[in-house]
Design a protein around this nucleic acid. Structure first.
Lengths: 217, 217
DNA sequence: AGTTGTGAAGGTATTCACAGCG
DNA sequence: CGCTGTGAATACCTTCACAACT
């Protein structure tokens, strides 16, 4: 069931989940038109996306979707129902330490459970809701706690080496905040997060818009 | 010429540009096979992507592409040849201030030219290679300096309001690092950058891999 | 009424496979 | 000969339009 969700659909649904998590009014139905208004995606597409979920139970009324049920359906489809995936931050410089008090994890299906830095001093000074360790404890902690994903924030020069070490330790997915391009073993997934790429994407889209005739409202 | 570059192609080319910028060996030819090895995209696709660029001059030899020429062609196609787009950081908390010494902009077509924060104290204490201003100077500075893009790092609760203000000031593209979903006027582009989404994408891909039979090397 | 859900049509992007070039 | 470059074929995603449901 739900074997093949198109990648763009998966991305939209992930963001939709985040939107639902944040939404104030947890019980008021949300319509595809409202989602269009909030996100800019056509309501048609949204309905099609939602139709790829296997909901089991009834999810919509005549005035829209039940947000809680919709959120649950998305989570179930992506295999993140009840359990939260455990993540660690690697590299606690300015960028890495910014996540120590980042609120976004609160409602999500991911939790931060550890941070690592090679600078022992920094590990001791920084405060967080979860323990911070010097790098040499990485292997032990990742195995013991059962950490799945890593958020990589080390300096660019160390990125590739650190990534390899993380994979050795059992990490299967890396969110790469460094500007380095990582190459990893097959089966391991990397998601690159880069301001420069984001700016590039913006720019590409705006350049494309200029060419197009304005067929949008 | 080059009227319609597919969106996924544009994204890959943007990343390819970054890869070329970082590459040590600036003169050794790079082949589509090597790019495949580094990025995971099929070499076929890469060649197709590159073929959408209008290169003017010859860009490849029989052992691959000339990296400098390729980079130049990508930049030209995206309208960012010589000039660098001017960007500002809005919100200088932990996350925002992490960009003050982020190296990635060095080789790119984007430059940071200003930072803003509502906390006057913070503006005075932080050090950067470019000037920092209190928020109330935003309109004046953006207009005078000619800033195009903003990197939004304010607390989630202020995100939507700040975005609207930025648009009023003349910003046409926003890289949104807050977990809030922004709605903006048509013609304005937003690129969301979120750890949570990145983790979601990772997870979705890994879940999909499990279903697939391993047809990869 | 208003909204979802969905087959069918249309449009895009990727893959294939091989011609053409240095 | 290895590598690029590209029409043609395929696979994929989105849009449309309307039936079904509340």
């Amino acid at each position: 069931m739900s074997v093949n969700i198109p990648k763009p659909t998966a991305e939209r649904l992930s963001q939709l989940a985040r939107l639902l998590e944040q939404r104030k009014n947890k019980s008021m139905p949300i319509s595809s038109a409202e989602i269009e208004q909030l996100t800019g995606w056509p309501s048609n597409t949204i309905r099609k996306d939602i139709s790829t979920l296997d909901t089991g139970t009834q999810i919509s009324t005549s005035s829209g979707y039940d947000p809680a049920k919709l959120l649950e359906a998305i989570r179930k489809t992506f295999g993140l129902s009840n359990m939260a995936f455990k993540c660690c931050i690697v590299g606690l410089g300015r960028l890495g330490s910014a996540f120590l008090d980042y609120g976004g994890f609160q409602e999500s299906s991911f939790t931060l459970v550890a941070g690592f830095d090679s600078n022992v001093n920094r590990v001791e000074i920084l405060k967080a809701d979860f323990p911070l360790y010097p790098t040499f404890k990485m292997k032990e902690v990742i195995a013991r706690v059962g950490i799945t994903y890593a958020i990589l924030c080390v300096p660019p020069a160390q990125a590739q080496a650190t990534a390899e070490k993380l994979v050795e330790c059992g990490i299967i997915g890396i969110v790469n905040f460094t500007p380095s391009i990582l190459s990893v073993l097959p089966g391991i997934e990397v998601e690159n997060v880069s301001v420069i790429d984001a700016l590039g994407a913006l720019n590409a889209r705006l350049a494309a818009n200029k060419t197009k005739t304005r067929s949008e409202l």
